[in-house]
Each structure stands twice: as C-alpha cells, then as structure tokens.
Design a protein around this nucleic acid. Structure first.
Lengths: 334, 334
DNA sequence: ACCTGCTTGTCAAAGGATTGACAACTGCCA
DNA sequence: TGGCAGTTGTCAATCCTTTGACAAGCAGGT
C-alpha cells in the first residue's frame, strides 16, 4: 500500500499532475472548480507530497540542521525554543542531532545533515573542532549560536556577552561585600571570556590579589572537584563564580560536604539560568544569557544568510542579566 | 558552485555514472583499475551522494525519526544513547524532533518525519495523543520506547517494568521501617502502573490504611505542590515515593521549606535515575529503569519490524533496579 | 566459424515533484 | 472572419541516483 503520489491525485481529480502542483502551491491561475476537485482528491487520498522528490526538484529542503554538543547539559533548551519559533514562522523545520552520541561512534555529525541537503546549519554551543564543519559551512549557510567558536569565513556568531555577564555576577558579589572571590573557569573561548570578565572587575576594585581562578570543566563533577580544591585552601574564598550552572551545583555540593552553609559561609553564582538552577532545592543565583533571544536572533541570522550567502559574517552579542536567587548573600564578618 | 553529482564523477573518471554507482555501493563486478579511478575522482571532487535522489530511487532513507516529548525532562538521555548505538550499528541515522516545541506551534510532530520518508519512527516517552501518530504508524514501522501508550496495532512497546520498579522502591521504604508512606502520582498509564505497584505493596504489608496518594505531575513544580499538601496534613507521611525524579526534587524542596530534614524527617524516592538525581547536592534515591537497555531493545524492535512490518506487536519490559542514595533512611521513632 | 558463458560496462527507465514553454480556449474588437 | 490578449491547462525536461536489461569483449570448447 504505497503512499499516494501526485499522479494519483491528478487522476482522481481528472486533471494533469502539473495542475495539482499548481493548486498545492497556491497559484491563482486555476479555476475554483478545478481547485476544489484537486483539494477534494488530496483530502480523500490523504496525499502528502514526497519531501525527497520535492527537494530534488526545488533544490532545497526547508529544513535546517541543529548540531547539539551534549543533551546532558541542558543550557540550550531555551535557545532551541527561540530558534524554533523563528524558523517555524519562516516555514522551516528543525532537525537535531546530538554531537556526543555521534562523536562516541566516530561519526561525523555534519555529514548526516549535508547529505540530507539541509538549507542551513546551526551549531549550538561549542562543538569539538571539526574539519567537516568547516567544509560544510563553505557550502551551507551556517550560524553558531551560544558559542564563540569556531570563527569561520561566512559564519555568523550569536551569543550572550560573556564578559559582561561575568562582570554582572562579579559586581554582584563585590556589592554584597565579598572580597575573596574565586572563579571556576571553563574551557574554550567562552571560558576565557568569562574568566577575563571576572578578572577585570576584580582588578577594577583593587581585588586582583584575592582573586583566585581554578580550572574546572562544564560538568558538576568538574565544578565539585575545583570547589573542593578552592575551599580546602588555607584562606578560603567567601564566594565562587562558576563557569556554568552545573559547575555551580558542583560547588554547592562541595560546600555542603565541607560543612559550609550557603549562602552564609559561601556564596555561589552559576551561569546560564538553566532549569537546574531554577530547581527550588538548588535555587542558584545565576546569569541569564537571554538564550531564548539568542535563539531567535540566530535564526534570523540564518534566514538572512540563506537569503544572501555572501554577506559578511556577523557577531551578535546579547546582553545578559543577573538572576539573583538563594545562593548569594553578604559574607559573615570574619 | 553546485555540489558535484555522480555525473561529474563519472566524467572525471571516464566511466558511466552507473559504474560509479556500482563502485560506491561496493560491487565486486568492477575491475580494480576502474574502481581506483572512480574513487580518486570521488576524492578529488569531494563527492557526496545526494540523499534525496537516493531515497527517491531506493525508496528508503536509512533514517529513523525520534519523537521526544520534552527536552526539559531529561530522563530519556540514556535511552537515546542506547537507541543510537544500536541503530548506528545497523547503518541507520537518527533524527530528533521535540514535541513540546512543535506542539506549542500547533504543528504536527510526525508530519516532518513522514514527509521526510523516514524508515522508522520511535516515540520516546508518553506523547500527547495524536491522530497523526496513529496514521503514521499504519505506514511506517513504529516503536514506543519508555512509555506504555499509545497501544496501536503494529506498534511495539519497550519500557521499564513500572509496577516492579514501584514495588522495589516501596519495599525499600517499608524495609527501612516506614509505615506512613505517600505517593505523588503521575499521569497516564505509566503513572497508573507506578501507583498500582505502590498500592499493591502497601496492601501486601497491611499498610493500605496509611498509604496516601496525591496527584502531581511530571514537573518539579507539581511535585513540590503535591508534597506541600502531603506534608501539611495532620498526620504527615515519613516517606514519599515520587512519580519521577523531577517530582522527587520538588518534594525535597517542600521538605526544606517546611523545615523537615531529609532523610531524617522525611525520606524521598524518585524514579528514572536521571542525571538530576545524580547531582551530588540532591543525591536522590531513585529507580533505574535501565534506560540504556530500553533504548537498545527498542532499536532492535524497530529493526525487526522494518524487516517484517507485519509481525505482531510486542511488549518488552525491562527489569528496573533500585538506586539507593542519600534521601532515604530509617524514620526517627515517633 | 560458431556457440556458450563469463566478466565488465553502458543504457534507460524508474522514482515524485517543480517549472518554463507552449497549446487550447475564451471573449473581444476590428 | 481573422487577429489579439488573457486565462487555464498540459507537456516534457529536470533534479540525482539506483537497478534491471542488455551489449560488448573475451576465452574456451566444438
């Protein structure tokens, strides 16, 4: 029982298949009666155009591929939402592939999408460096969202202003009275920008000497271990700015383990405003990157680039906002 | 600068396009020299076969569509992993679409995939009832993974044994000495199975009278509210079995808010063993559904069904395991 | 010389939709 | 009656790959 094709519809409606195509694409060059006949036939047969045939002929798929780096780190959920809403309005659908899954299998993420002939590519978050992405981006309109790399010739980048976000968080802590503040740093350009933002503000306030940076990673485990190191030091910090929420949660655990009360003995700030930070039981003060907005604007960039593939690469930064919750407070007097 | 096609390759290698096709599909009916020539041309041109044309001609896509219900609830991450590893071995790639995103836009999740002509469909988790899924399942091999509905004619179901999982958790609590145990129930068939498992065990232990069931939902918010109601009762329970981890985390928050210590004053058990439950700071006792295994077996079911679409629908249940962490303990003597 | 059978390639027909070129028809005017 | 413009439809080429049918070349047997 094959799916009905355009010929079946044409036959049933008593017209040519070209006319069916015209009707389906909303041409006004067709008489109302014929239009009705065609639509009726479509309805009765449950006809759905074959995407493969269509994309072959139209040379586009009305589909964009979204490359995710890791479903386990949920910061991108809002971003996807923004992305989707804008793309949907433009008549594009979204397909996702998780990098971590594919990576483990030695597969190339982008190939699935290039083979599929997607009209655009969105890399969400920092992906592992990939030659394939570079070559794909040379053929397919590509936008990086929520990350700062890779920088490629005709690839736009849309992200939160990490330096500014780190500044907000650091100033918040300083404003509360903290002096000895530590930063659990992340990797890559984003990690560097957040670290620099932190360091800059500390310097501005003459606190360069009491600023500590400990390398962590993007996971709770990494945040935990870094925090344990920080808090076991002889002069422990009274506040920690973590690279992201997961690392921040790790810091919370470390504090608990070491018998420190949050925020009494230790303030913790995360980054990304993920739903994890919003869990009432964690209620982590964090920096909101405006991910929904980042998603929308990334989508817009992609649409613009699809319209004009040769336009110069753009760098769009959104302004983050501090989200004060329960894990920050004034330090107890020493 | 169009992507090179099979004709370009053929021309460059000085052979017909049919031969190129033969080489690419590994036929042994071709002389080594020609094979080399073709492969060299492919390499030089960076040729990649056009998936649309191929699927049009082969009448299959080597792609399966994965329908997710909500990226915000992370229980399925492991499942996807298992799914992917098995499908990858079979030469199939995986494409995902998030139901919540599409739903909000009044779009039909399954249409993207049916239009794309995927070879199979996997519904992960309980999806909103959809006529489209029913009709899609009539044409496309379909498997439900990690849920118990919808039950459709030729659709296999692979899931954890929820009744058994609830039993394990409840017995664990009773074994610790709890008598007054509450359950925060979820919706749908899965919710019902877990609730029944709970009730059955309570009855077996003569605790039917002290068993309380409060309706919640799958979110932290729902769990929180249900727990607040439970814990504000005149005779409050000493233990709560939540429908899932998110609801369990909500219960933790409620306990904290009401000044109850976990597990001293209240034991909490979640369900799904998500990474949220593994966060050190939560360290939630939970039930592991063996999601990785569920994923692998769902993939196998799908492969079998693709091979023989008419085989009778199967119901595969995996055996869950209790994961005891920090949120359960003996009740303090009244 | 001719037939047979094998190996190695080529041809051309799908497969389903889009689209530019063109045909048939209408009505209108000269 | 013939010509013209404007509507409505149809035809056929095109997009790229797969694949069954078939052709050409060769070797060996008779």
């Amino acid at each position: 029982m094959r799916a009905p094709t355009i010929r079946d519809v044409a036959e049933r409606a008593g017209v040519s298949k070209s006319l069916v195509s015209l009707v389906l694409r909303g041409s006004d060059q067709v008489r109302p009666e014929k239009r009705q006949a065609v639509l009726a036939a479509v309805e009765e047969l449950g006809y759905r155009p074959n995407a493969a045939a269509r994309s072959l002929s139209e040379r586009r798929t009305r589909t964009v591929g979204v490359l995710l780096n890791d479903l386990r780190n949920p910061w991108f959920v809002e971003l996807l939402d923004g992305l989707n809403s804008r793309l949907h309005d433009a008549g594009l659908r979204m397909l996702m592939a998780d990098g971590r899954l594919s990576r483990r299998l030695g597969e190339d993420l982008t190939r699935t999408f290039t083979d599929l002939g997607v009209d655009g590519l969105i890399a969400v978050g920092t992906l592992p460096p990939s030659e394939a992405l570079r070559t794909a981006a040379a053929r397919i309109p590509t936008v990086v969202a929520g990350a700062r790399e890779p920088r490629l010739p005709a690839v736009d980048i849309v992200a939160g202003d990490d330096g500014h976000g780190a500044r907000l968080a650091t100033e918040h802590l300083i404003g509360l009275g903290h002096r000895r503040i530590a930063h659990i740093a992340g990797q890559g350009v984003v990690g560097e920008l957040r670290r620099r933002g932190f360091e800059t503000v500390m310097r501005e306030h003459g606190l360069a000497d009491t600023a500590v940076v400990e390398q962590g990673d993007l996971t709770e485990e990494g945040g935990y271990r870094a925090a344990v190191r920080l808090l076991s030091a002889r002069e422990r910090p009274t506040a920690v700015l973590a690279f992201n929420d997961m690392a921040g949660v790790g810091a919370l655990s470390a504090a608990e383990q070491l018998g420190l009360q949050v925020p009494r003995d230790l303030s913790v700030v995360g980054y990304d405003n993920t739903y994890v930070s919003r869990l009432r039981h964690l209620w982590l003060t964090t920096v909101d990157n405006g991910s929904h907005d980042v998603g929308r604007r990334a989508a817009q960039c992609l649409l613009d680039r699809i319209a004009d593939p040769s336009r110069p690469a753009e760098l769009v930064l959104t302004t983050p906002a501090l989200e004060v919750r329960g894990t920050t407070g004034a330090p107890v007097a020493a």
